[in-house]
Design a protein around this nucleic acid. Structure first.
Lengths: 114, 114
DNA sequence: TTAGTATATAACTATATGCTTATATATTCA
DNA sequence: TGAATATATAAGCATATAGTTATATACTAA
């Protein structure tokens, strides 16, 4: 079986990005659920620009991708990314963040468009 | 098979530490070879205090351990650490750094004590 | 004990980071 | 078209980070 191989420099860049609790949690959530910015604002109880800036960093290196649907922009894990297997392997070691999505649904803040 | 489980906060802390090219390379080297501070100074062509400070951060969270042998303090990967499997899984995806040790041996800078 | 070598720590500096507020852009819908 | 909503970007600020130089500590060997 071939192992994922990632250059040291690129790996360090990815790990630095994931080395922030907010971003790491975002990516773990996106592993199973698409989310839009306003949902993350709700989940993290953080300002909208702050959320947008975290998402941009993750998108800039290709870890996540965006897709506009009507008014909202939905983010998801970019499985086509060259380093997706590396990221996925890390996420696999982390506890599920389902309760965060469940909490959104519970208080009616979950966006289900299209 | 049980998967490694690491809390999100602790994982973020570990990833942040590994998210620096110097530290990530150090840890990858320590995966296979013990090294002392002066060897890292040689390998990274960086000041001794800078190397010491990186090693201290890694040691403070238990990723690596130190052992004095005579004049030198040798560092190694701490396989007893609670989160060693998580770290090891990340290292497995990285290219071998053997040439760095080989280069040390070649120019006679490799320390082999005791 | 003294000189030399290895390592750690302290103090400082420049840059990076994460957040905030203010504002711009894009879409929807009345 | 204009108001409301969602998102992005710009600018500013406080703190964190990674490096430096200077100095302290620890061990070795003469």
């Amino acid at each position: 079986m071939e192992k994922t191989q990632v250059g040291i420099g690129k790996a360090a860049m990815i790990l630095k990005l994931l080395g922030d609790k907010t971003r790491l949690t975002m990516v773990k959530i996106l592993e199973t659920d698409e989310c839009c910015v306003c949902e993350f604002v709700e989940i993290f109880n953080m300002s909208q620009p702050s959320i947008s800036q975290h998402l941009r960093k993750l998108r800039d290196v290709g870890i996540i991708q965006e897709e506009r649907r009507g008014q909202w922009i939905f983010y998801s894990l970019n499985q086509q990314n060259e380093h997706y297997p590396f990221v996925e392997q890390i996420l696999a070691a982390l506890p599920n963040q389902d309760e965060k999505i469940k909490a959104l649904e519970k208080n009616g803040a979950r966006i289900t468009c299209c």
